[in-house]
Design a binder for these strands. Structure first.
Length: 564
RNA sequence: UGGGGCGUCGUCCAAUGGCAGGACAGAGGCCUUUGGAGCCUCUAAUGGUGGUUCGAAUCCACCCGCCUCAGCCA
């Protein structure tokens, strides 16, 4: 990940880091980290954080850590650790040997808890969860102190020891910090440090039956790793005073936390909890469904890591709530794919064309350019014969104004091949459906140029019927119909905003034969249609393509504005 | 209702007391063997009211609006 920042101005975080370096705050060091909880799949919102943290470590010659904040054994699984590692690698971030787990620090955290007890800064509380909540008070009224708040150090030590030894039931006791029940910041009203959870942990197994809360773990984990700049999202702003309190009481390395606004994108949901519902209600096939905003979903859809990184650098970094338009993401994608994807001709909805004056049984190999944006991509041969397929959308019997494609009596160019003219339209006698076009070709226009200099309005893609291979193509559209999927009327469910047409499967599409040996994840531009990649569901007899994104489409725009 | 945070083109981000700029989106045009790509032009913003200042998006005051916090989740 070495994308150079084109922008001359720095975001507020880099401005702070510049200043810290200037004042030698951390001895010129920069150590950042990405600290996910391994309880779900990473999505593009996480990519923003990964790009930020890893990007900064690179720009400042610093160090980047990957740390799994695994403090809740009830929800965390090894499966998520593995998928996250894969996704982060794919995005291009490299943590070297700096892979950590908050659970690596459980012993240290336990010792620190004992120190706080000994210092009279923590106590074991026997209140129930509901009582603790009730005692905490309201925003505008102070809380009540727990009746267990003033137990002796000895009693607290004994009780905490017994909590650790499994002598108590879950929920019967917690260890709390003794701070200030009247604090205006709710996080300071004697927050819970440890709770009893008699479940095994994906890394520590059954060693512990008490687990530190995230709030008692996160700041100290950063501290242990000597993180200089702990970058997190806005909702942790209120927690910073608590992290600072722990760090000060413990007298350990004081990491500087800086908060930034999380990413929102139109037509997308980027909340872990909401995404779980989409998956569990089977609106999609899984976490890697190409409609999902997860890294794994985007990858399967055909996104490139470069395009996601470019997007992350373009959206900037600030503290104001923001919703980036999905068009920007798509722009970054197209821009990248335009440079790297080889062009190919594929007909999604085939319409048979017979070239009446072309010899039966003849086949020609025509030269086609693989990528006009990249000469080094070279050329290939494309077979041409008497019977072809063109796109159904490329023919209209009674064309409206501005429809430049094929129509009765009209001449168009078949890309890299010949000019053809439509001389007859064959219809199904029963349904009236157009089933075949009879055309003639001009042998003089081989390659696509007329010696007499005459012009055609359109160049169309096509495949030779005899040579084309059949494939399934999955057309994806946005998962939600509403720019803000969460915007619903009273009593309505945001899941009702799911786009019922987010997936259209096209069978028996005809693909240019050069794609016969394409492998999953291979990306192509189907000329005039969009960018597509080979899906992992492909088999040896049938390729399956995912439409990554369409090409910008002037004609579609005209049609759309006409409908309005 | 108390705390914390945030308000700049439709959207995202700049401008740190000195001509409000870029990107995406949108409109128009050029070019084109992809109605792709590329190129050009245009449209379009400082939440409000006072104040300080030669000069305010920027500093001050007040107001308005939005987000967020009352898990033994992270």
């Amino acid at each position: 990940m070495d994308d150079t920042k084109a922008s001359s101005s720095k975001d507020f975080i880099r401005t702070i880091i510049d200043e810290d370096i200037r004042t030698n705050k951390w001895g010129g060091k920069v150590v950042t980290r990405f600290p996910p909880e391994p309880n779900a799949y990473l999505h593009i919102g996480h990519a923003k954080s990964i790009c930020l943290n890893y990007g900064i470590s690179q720009e400042y010659n610093g160090v980047f850590h990957l740390r799994f904040d695994d403090t809740n054994p009830c929800k965390e699984e090894e499966e998520f650790v593995e998928s996250m590692i894969e996704d982060i690698r794919w995005l291009g971030a490299d943590w070297g040997d700096n892979l950590f787990y908050a659970s690596d620090y459980y012993d240290q955290l336990y010792e620190w808890a004992i120190k706080l007890i000994k210092d009279g800064k923590a106590y074991v509380c026997d209140l129930t969860s509901d009582q603790i909540s009730e005692y905490r008070g309201k925003w505008n009224e102070p809380g009540k102190e727990s009746p267990y708040r003033n137990r002796s150090v000895e009693e607290n030590l004994d009780l905490f020891e017994r909590m650790k030894n499994g002598e108590f039931d879950e929920g019967s006791h917690v260890l709390r910090a003794k701070i200030d029940m009247a604090a205006s910041n709710m996080n300071m009203r004697d927050p819970v440090m440890y709770r009893i959870l008699k479940v095994s942990h994906h890394r520590t197994g059954d060693k512990w039956c008490i687990y530190p809360t995230y709030d008692f773990t996160h700041g100290q984990s950063d501290s242990i790793e000597k993180i200089t700049h702990s970058l997190c999202t806005l909702e942790f702003e209120d927690h910073r005073p608590l992290y600072d309190w722990y760090i000060e009481q413990l007298g350990i390395h004081h990491t500087q936390q800086i908060e930034f606004a999380r990413l929102n994108i139109t037509y997308m949901v980027l909340s872990k909890r909401k995404l779980v519902q989409v998956v569990e209600n089977n609106y999609v096939s899984g976490w890697d469904d190409p409609r999902m905003p997860t890294i794994t979903g985007l990858r399967r859809r055909g996104y490139t890591p470069e395009s996601i990184r470019d997007f992350c650098s373009r959206i900037g970094m600030a503290k104001s709530d923001n919703t980036v338009e999905i068009e920007l993401l798509e722009h970054c994608l197209r821009e990248d794919l335009n440079k790297r994807a080889n062009r190919v001709m594929s007909v999604l909805k085939p319409l048979k064309v017979v070239i009446e004056n072309y010899p039966d049984g003849k086949t020609e190999e025509l030269d086609a350019i693989n990528n006009p944006e990249d000469e080094s991509a070279g050329t290939r041969k494309v077979p041409f014969s008497k019977v072809l397929y063109i796109e159904q959308d490329d023919f209209m019997e009674d064309p409206p104004k501005k429809f430049f494609r094929l129509a009765p009596g009209r001449e168009v160019r078949l890309r890299y091949a010949y000019f053809i003219k439509c001389v007859d339209v064959v219809k199904d006698e029963q349904t009236g459906e157009i089933i075949e076009l009879r055309c003639t070709y001009d042998p003089e226009t081989r390659g696509g140029n007329a010696p007499d200099g005459r012009k055609v309005k359109t160049t169309m893609h096509w495949v030779s019927a005899e040579h084309a291979i059949e494939a399934d193509v999955r057309l994806y559209d946005r998962l939600f119909t509403n720019a803000n999927p969460l915007d619903v009327d009273e009593g309505e469910n945001w899941l009702d905003n799911i786009n019922p047409d987010s997936l259209t499967v096209l069978e028996s599409c005809r693909i240019e034969p050069s794609l016969k040996n394409a492998k999953p994840q291979d990306r192509f531009q189907f000329e005039r249609l969009g960018y597509f990649c080979v899906d992992k569901d492909s088999t040896s007899d049938k390729l399956v393509f995912n439409r990554t994104v369409t090409l910008r489409d002037e004609w579609a725009k005209i049609q759309k504005s006409r409908k309005k």
